[in-house]
């Protein structure tokens, strides 16, 4: 199939960007979306033009590195799918595809489709962990964990930190990301101990990074490649309320 791509090109963080049109020819439906971009890039290099920069690594939907807004949808048209797992059979010949980076103040564009998501790391550094050092841990079976809690913690822990939730949210809110980590750790007895500190610190860090607020719409959940539920946001709202009442 042949496609027309409108791709956001931006040299670096301080330059302004614009859309540039490219033709993608002889694309086959077995290709992944990123492999389609590989093909376009190979042609660009052959013509002596700068290839399109985009983040990617594992190409199997788990590392969370890739992320492109495709026709207004973070990670493209398929549900529960990262950009790297989106395949070209989702498109048909003649389609015009708009390709943009994540848009959020907290995720500045570094080049073309690459954004800086280090804000997520700083939020985790503010409290997204359990304060145990190596050694001295009790036996793994010393503290039983109910299967329901463990399963729900795992539902939250599946987050790959890709940032699609922020990209989809009209307020660029990071609530789904933050609440997933707060819930994952808070649901386990091991993490419950410092849950108050954790949620207060992580929310403070989130606000400082310049993410927007949750207006309870649910776009984040709809685009999340790991289908993380907005229930976790409600859960964090509760955890924060409790922490605030009990502390400070």
């Amino acid at each position: 199939m042949n496609l027309t791509l409108k791709v956001w090109r931006q040299k670096d963080a301080s330059s302004s960007g614009r859309f540039v049109e490219y033709e993608a020819r002889n694309i086959i439906e077995e290709m992944s979306f990123l492999e389609m971009l590989d093909v376009v890039n190979e042609e660009l290099v052959a013509k002596g033009e700068d290839p399109i920069a985009f983040d990617h690594d594992c190409r199997e939907g788990i590392c969370g590195t890739c992320g492109i807004v495709i026709d207004g949808s973070p990670h493209g048209p398929w549900d529960a799918t990262t950009t790297c797992q989106l395949h070209m059979r989702a498109f048909k010949s003649g389609d015009v595809i708009t390709i943009e980076p994540w848009r959020a103040k907290a995720f500045p564009v570094i080049r073309d489709l690459i954004v800086d998501r280090s804000a997520f790391d700083r939020i985790i550094q503010a409290g997204g962990f359990i304060s145990v050092s190596t050694g001295g841990a009790p036996d793994g079976n010393a503290i039983p964990v109910s299967k329901d809690d463990a399963d729900m913690a795992m539902d939250a822990a599946q987050c790959i930190g890709c940032g699609a939730c922020v990209a989809a949210c009209k307020n660029a809110s990071a609530m789904l990301f933050v609440s997933a980590k707060v819930s994952h750790l808070g649901l386990l007895p091991q993490g419950e101990v410092e849950q108050d500190r954790r949620v207060l610190n992580m929310v403070r860090a989130m606000d400082a990074e310049g993410f927007g607020n949750c207006t309870n719409i649910g776009s984040c959940e709809a685009v999340c490649p790991k289908e993380i539920s907005v229930d976790f946001i409600g859960r964090m709202n509760r955890d924060y309320r409790r922490a605030l009442l009990r502390n400070e």
Partner: peptide, 10 residues
């Protein structure tokens, strides 16, 4: 929220 998302998608 406006500040958090200064640029819109096309």
């Amino acid at each position: 929220n406006r500040r958090a998302r200064p640029v819109d998608y096309s």
